[in-house]
Design a protein around this nucleic acid. Structure first.
Lengths: 365, 365
DNA sequence: CTGAAAGCGCTTACAG
DNA sequence: CTGAAAGCGCTTACAG
């Protein structure tokens, strides 16, 4: 046999990885049989199978994923696109998803869009170039036509995280905020608040729209005055270190200016952190001077005084749902698109209390 | 030609991905030439190259990574192992590393060990089975012999994040804490503290040992009494939701019991969160009743009152250094192992102040 | 500078 | 149930 790689003669002799041919020789069967033990074990007689498995174990055989991929046109790789893997929410979802998929022999490539449309385009392109078998994506903008057409022609499973894209055949894991926002507003109304403000993420994505519409509907129903509805666009969440804090300060400023006695801060916790920072800088205490409800549990929400009242959800459930959708659809591509819904709940802690007599009084003193 | 996949006839006709053969035909050259344009462009005449590139673009050609991998025995995939991708520190490092490697055409598989030795073993096994080209790892235990022998026989680049493993040929990105801990202790000494306590991570890893030895050396040199040296093992950081808070409570309890007037909390911020939680529950104010210095910036450290004095570092630099090491060593495997050092710095904010007259007085009142 | 050919390690339809 | 054979899409030494 002619040597194809004469430049690495040592390696081919010494530490070459075992292949199915090696296993076949050692087991006295054909490589077809060895291959079947790997991919269609039931088509091999129990005896032969056991023997082959024993030899594989002894030789430390590991399937060459590249070779298998080339043959099957499957990479056993999934892609996860999130705005930022360093974000507490997406970090946890990624962790759970990776763990689940690993059980099914699927590796997870994770990319961050950096909260930008261009970033999300590059990432999706990159995933497609790598021919991942499935995609789980949290888009920064549902209306990015480049991304939507890429996803549309992807031809493999796509799972959207809390996004709605018309005309795209995809499974989706939704978060249902409406009830929790209603509960939060009821809680505030009961405490005596009359003027409430909302900060939310971009309405170019479903959760932003849902927060706004739920806020409007339920505040009105409860007779609460909606003094602020502020959208914090994704560019202001994470383009560079510190912007999120700045965005939070602006939220705080506008809430105070408008006379809100309670803030629904339905934005990433890094932004809510900025809100807290601003309120502190103004000498305003939570909850005595102003009430605040945060979104998603986090270190921010759970520890420092006051512990924050939050609208929370199980991030683990989101990860598990996404993995289930990937695996199910990979096994059964014909299935109709499905939606799973994760419910948010209000967790009352220490950052909400009856309003100060008048916030303007407070701000002026 | 006999059909190998008669079950999917439509696909092979309609949406088959272009291959180098397709490009070769369309460009009127051999597939060897097309391949060279991809892998050794300088060996192709400029004219031919330009023409081939044009055709590739027109056909939307994308190299089949699996085929290339099979031929070259390289996957252009790197693996990152961290205790938990949901941790703020590792999340940011991962984000930067992924972005950097993507520039070099390397995809990043990220796995979390869940802060456990068994988890780290499974992950490393999984990476090796996938034949990643390089590994970047933050181990939970430097003395795990299974892992060490796997890494030792890996035969491809390994970058250790702040770990020391004797006998392992690997590059390493170190964090230098000594000076920052000295600065922190000097700061506390100047404020008038005499009794200080340290909480750190497991001494089965380098940073734990470094923190302890720096603490001991510098506290002694400054004449500070070391009333507590507490190791928080990794199992208590993240095995399940809430353990970290519990661990933090215990840290707080022991600090108070021992009469520390200042705490150096060199543990993950989720644990430091528990410390804050405990102190609050005891009605102790920071910094009036007790001073606290945290480790690594985080939402926890940057926002809520009081903003925490921290020992911090550039996580971005860690990510960049790691990516540089991966890329450099992939290009030049013969290089001697290298070490990059990231320095920590003390950032004084609002959680440190002169000690209360007597902490025991405070605790009793 | 270019092309023909071999081969990377698998999977699977086909024929026993 | 098993084996021989073809072929997935690349890369590269070899020979022009």
């Amino acid at each position: 046999m002619k040597k194809l790689f004469p430049e690495v003669p040592a390696k081919s002799a010494a530490k070459r990885e075992a292949t199915i041919v090696d296993v076949a020789e050692a087991a006295g069967v054909s490589k077809s049989t060895v291959s079947r033990v790997l991919s269609q074990p039931l088509k091999v007689s129990p005896n032969t199978r056991a023997q082959v498995l024993e030899v594989m174990d002894r030789l430390g055989y590991r399937v060459n994923v590249a070779a298998r991929s080339l043959r099957t046109a499957k990479t056993s790789l999934a892609g996860l696109l999130v705005p930022a893997i360093s974000n507490d929410v997406f970090g946890r979802i990624a962790e759970v998803l990776e763990e689940d998929l690993r059980q099914d022999g699927i590796g997870l490539l994770i990319m961050s869009s950096g909260w930008s449309a261009s970033g999300q385009r590059l990432a999706i392109e990159s995933f497609i170039a790598r021919r991942v078998d499935a995609l789980v994506v949290s888009l920064v903008d549902e209306h990015d036509s480049d991304v939507n057409s890429m996803l549309g022609s992807f031809g493999r499973p796509v799972v959207l995280l809390d996004r709605e894209i018309r005309g795209l055949r995809a499974d989706v894991v939704l978060t249902e905020q409406g009830n929790a926002i209603r509960a939060a507003l009821e809680h505030l109304a009961q405490l005596g608040h009359r003027s409430v403000g909302l900060a939310t993420i971009s309405t170019t994505v479903r959760p932003g729209r849902e927060a706004v519409s739920a806020f409007e509907a339920h505040a009105d129903a409860l007779g609460l005055q909606r003094v602020v509805e502020m959208v914090v666009p994704y560019e202001r969440v994470g383009a560079w270190a510190g912007v999120d804090t700045w965005a939070g300060w602006e939220v705080g400023q506008r809430m105070i200016d408008a006379g809100a006695t309670a803030i629904l801060s339905c934005v990433p916790n890094s932004v809510t952190g900025g809100v807290l920072d601003f309120l502190r800088s103004r000498g305003l205490n939570i909850p005595e001077d102003i009430s605040l409800i945060a979104f998603d549990e986090s270190e921010l929400a759970s520890v420092k005084p006051p512990r924050l009242t939050v609208i929370g959800r199980s991030l683990d459930d989101i990860g598990h749902s996404a993995s289930r959708m990937v695996v199910t659809r990979l096994a059964n591509p014909g299935l109709a698109p499905r939606a799973a819904t994760i419910k948010m709940r209000l967790h009352i802690q220490d950052s909400t209390a009856p309003p100060a007599l008048s916030l303007s009084t407070v701000a002026q003193r």
